[in-house]
Design a protein around this nucleic acid. Structure first.
Length: 738
RNA sequence: GCUGCUGUAGCUCAGUGGUAGAGCGCGUCCUUGGUAAGGACGAGGUCCUGGGUUCAAAUCCCAGCAGCAGCUCCA
């Protein structure tokens, strides 16, 4: 007999081969019909599997069992995964010979990757959906069966599913037994679980089609990824689609245009952001805020130029590691780019990655000569190394500048500009440093991913003893800054080195281990919850990143604190210790906002454009009732401006109704309606954007100024419109192993 | 960079192998108004760029550029 413990704690006995559905039937037919899956000992499994087969608990131990119906949030993921199978089955019917890759669930639906030469387009969605609906109407069961690795390979081979075969042989090499699910004529390698039959899938819709890479590697074959969503009712589906539409309305690109905050013009260039006056007001407010905060915390503001010698970035490693993501160097000599290309080609030739003929070299020599670089020393018949050396010598004598991709080397030079004593440390150099990166075209995204950005950057140089303390206080600064602007919906990520691919990083294992251990220790001591992510570190050190979500749920890195033992070594930085001997300082890179562009973009979405008073680009608008009140309106505007408020007056020929509406739609926190009555009393009629007409308040100008100043200095956040796509709770992306 | 979709007035978008439309905004005038749209008139377009097909292309085809979504990348 099988001993099963139900969620209420009661233990009951059932026949050995009973499934969760069978158990449900003993409670009630309706419950059995509603059961979609079962949670056994904390793991979600098929409701149709014999409970006793799932776990080998010691004999006599009752098995904890929970029946999962559509009311349980876990049911959605199970059902969506089944929907992915149904979609794949439909696609297979319509496109014979399609190769199957992976088909997991996502936070709001599911996708399946297909290897298919025919291009699926959105025009094909209706017939795929129709086929899916047929499959759902047929309500055939999902049947699980197991196979050994060899059987599985043969089975998938017979089905001509090459990607599955490859996956079994590589990704699943350590699995002895593999499970499959059959649904009618469709069989798929799959970990499960699934709903009992396709009829349990109620409301489905295909969302989009896009490219993806096999196993997420851009060097691999490109697949077609079909996205869909599924819900237990049409109502839920409609609600979800409505939410997506709502979410798009708070997109910073939409609001940025609507509210005149920023603009990205094709004339200026892709990824280059123009901060319009209103966007600039927000940025300036943020910058003032953090500048004051940094002074309090012992930072010293510095300025550095926008370009620097390429050699400096070769020393730091930025140039060799990220060359393809940088704007080309600025060459002082006309032949600079040519020689640069030449050296790269020679290196590729040496490494065997490309062919570079003697004839090519002769042509280049000729061209260089025409461009004014004679290169008489070039050893045409010498070794590749000798050739590279000759060209390098020429290059070293020329000017080569890089549009700066990072501020750190500049700050490093500032540190090195004088001798440092341990008594001087920590040195904290802060700068709103503008950097340029040639991001790939497909990566650009409004203000969130740009090619020119300003970091609220600073570099701390400290003794090894000071590292933990400095790191800790820096993390606290980031947290303080985020909470000051009302951003509390973020995730802390500990970004570590990829232990399997160390070629992406500079520095010794010892330095890395030291840095990663320190970070983990500090985070743990602070009691913060964080997620550790391998392979997310910077090339010079591990970091703690503050991740937030945008209006449609994509995650972005804002603030970051990075620990670096490596750049001080590469630049041979020193300080004189108490022992009168030179020591190597440790660097901390940190940017609470990350970049002003991305941070402002995220803030726009966070507040859905409705900024709190202290950040609002236009804080107060004076609305004269008629021309008779123009003079008084002007004086009110002047007094508010003098009190420090960003104030305008609406002199349009509209009626006050329209003026109120305009200001309301432009999300201006306070409107001051003034007419003859107010003019007579030196008053304003204060209309609060949030309270509207119902709670208008007539105050003297002085009282209104005082009221608003109180809200301003407190940096009060009175409203944040919740977004359904931001929260971190709901986004448990199901990783399907296979 | 890859795959797919999109590109029409300042904005949002409709539209057709036969020479271009709406709403909002903008301008002028009337209205001098009391808390989410007062009225009239008017100006605005190389229909992304370059090729091709055609008697005829903004519309069909190709290429490029840009935007969007996804993938990959992100110092």
């Amino acid at each position: 007999m099988l001993q099963i413990q139900l969620p209420d704690g009661s233990v009951k006995e059932y026949p050995e081969n009973y499934t969760a559905i069978d158990v449900a039937k003993t409670i009630g037919e309706r419950l059995a019909a509603a059961t979609l899956a079962a949670e056994i000992n904390g793991t979600v499994v098929d409701a149709t599997r014999p409970v006793g087969q799932v776990f080998n608990l010691p004999p006599g131990t009752p098995i904890p069992l929970k029946l999962i119906t559509s009311r349980d949030p876990k049911a959605l993921a199970v059902m969506r995964h089944s929907a992915a199978h149904v979609m794949a089955r439909a696609v297979m019917r319509l496109y014979p010979g399609v190769g199957l890759a992976f088909g997991p669930t996502t936070g709001h639906g599911f996708y399946y990757d297909f290897d298919l030469d025919t291009k699926i387009s959105e025009d094909d969605f209706p017939r795929i959906e129709e086929e899916m609906k047929k499959i759902i109407a047929d309500a055939e069961p999902f049947e699980r069966f197991s196979a050994t690795r060899d059987e599985a390979v043969k089975f998938c081979g017979d089905l001509n599913q090459k990607l599955k075969v490859e996956h079994i042989q590589t990704g699943l090499a350590d699995h002895d037994s593999l499970s499959f699910y059959r649904q009618g004529e469709f069989v798929d390698l799959c970990r499960g679980p699934h709903v009992p039959d396709a009829g349990r899938i109620t409301a489905i819709k295909l969302i989009s089609i896009a490219g993806s890479y096999w196993k997420g590697d851009a060097n691999n074959k490109q697949l077609q990824r079909l996205y869909g969503t599924a819900w237990f009712s049409q109502k839920d589906l409609d609600e979800y689609l409505k939410q997506i539409d709502e979410a798009k309305k708070r997109d910073h690109r939409v609001l940025g245009k609507q509210l005149g905050l920023f603009s990205i013009s094709q004339e200026v260039g892709p990824g280059l952001c123009l901060w319009l006056p209103k966007g600039s007001a927000i940025r300036a407010t943020l910058e003032d805020f953090i500048k004051k905060e940094l002074l309090k915390r012992g930072y010293t503001p510095v300025y550095s130029p926008h370009i620097g010698r390429v050699e400096m970035y070769e020393t730091s490693g930025h140039f060799p590691y990220y060359r393809d993501a940088q704007f080309s160097p600025i060459f002082g000599h006309d032949a600079g780019a040519l020689v640069d290309f030449w050296i790269r080609k020679l290196r590729e030739h040496k490494e065997g990655t490309s062919v570079f003929s003697l004839d090519d070299e002769k042509k280049l020599l000729e061209s260089a000569k025409v461009m004014g670089a004679a290169l008489t020393e070039y050893p045409l018949s010498g070794s590749v190394d000798a050739k590279i050396d000759t060209l390098r010598v020429w290059e070293k004598n020329q000017e080569r500048y890089l549009l700066k991709p990072m501020n750190c080397p500049h700050h490093v030079q500032m540190y090195a500009s004088q001798q440092r004593s341990y008594r001087d440390l920590p040195v904290r150099l802060a700068e709103f440093g503008t950097v340029y990166r040639h991001e790939k075209t497909g990566e650009l995204n409004g203000m969130l991913r740009v090619r020119g950005l300003t970091q609220d950057d600073a570099h701390l140089f400290c003794t090894p003893d000071q590292v933990e303390e400095e790191f800790k206080s820096t993390l606290e600064l980031v947290k303080f800054v985020l909470s000051s602007v009302g951003l509390d919906d973020y995730r802390v990520q500990l970004s570590l080195r990829d232990s399997k691919n160390k070629t992406k990083y500079v520095g010794s294992d010892e330095n890395w281990d030291r840095a990663e251990t320190t970070l983990r220790k500090v985070l743990t001591e602070m009691g913060w919850s964080f997620t550790a992510c391998e392979g997310e570190a910077a090339f010079y050190g591990p970091k703690t990143d503050f991740m937030v979500r945008d209006c449609i749920g994509r995650e972005w890195q804002l603030g970051t604190v990075q620990l670096d033992f490596n750049l001080p070594e590469r630049f041979k930085l020193e300080y004189i210790g108490a022992d009168n001997k030179p020591h190597r300082p440790v660097m901390i890179h940190r940017a609470p906002f990350g970049s002003m562009e991305r941070f402002t973009g995220m803030l726009i979405e966070h507040f859905a454009g409705a900024f709190p008073l202290w950040l609002a680009p236009e804080q107060v608008r004076v609305l004269p009732i008629s021309e008779k009140a123009y003079d008084y309106a002007a004086s009110v505007e002047r007094r508010f401006r003098e009190a420090g408020f960003r104030t305008t007056t609406d002199y349009s020929s509209n009626r006050v109704n329209a003026k109120v509406r305009d200001a309301q739609l432009q999300l201006i926190p306070y409107m001051l309606v003034v007419g003859e009555k107010e003019a007579a009393e030196d008053a304003v009629d204060v209309r609060d954007r949030l309270l509207g007409d119902a709670q208008r308040e007539k105050l003297t100008v002085a009282a209104a100024i005082a009221k608003l100043q109180e809200e301003l200095t407190a940096r009060r956040v009175r409203q944040v419109v919740k977004s359904s796509f931001r929260s971190f709770e709901e986004s448990s992306e199901e990783e399907n192993e296979y």
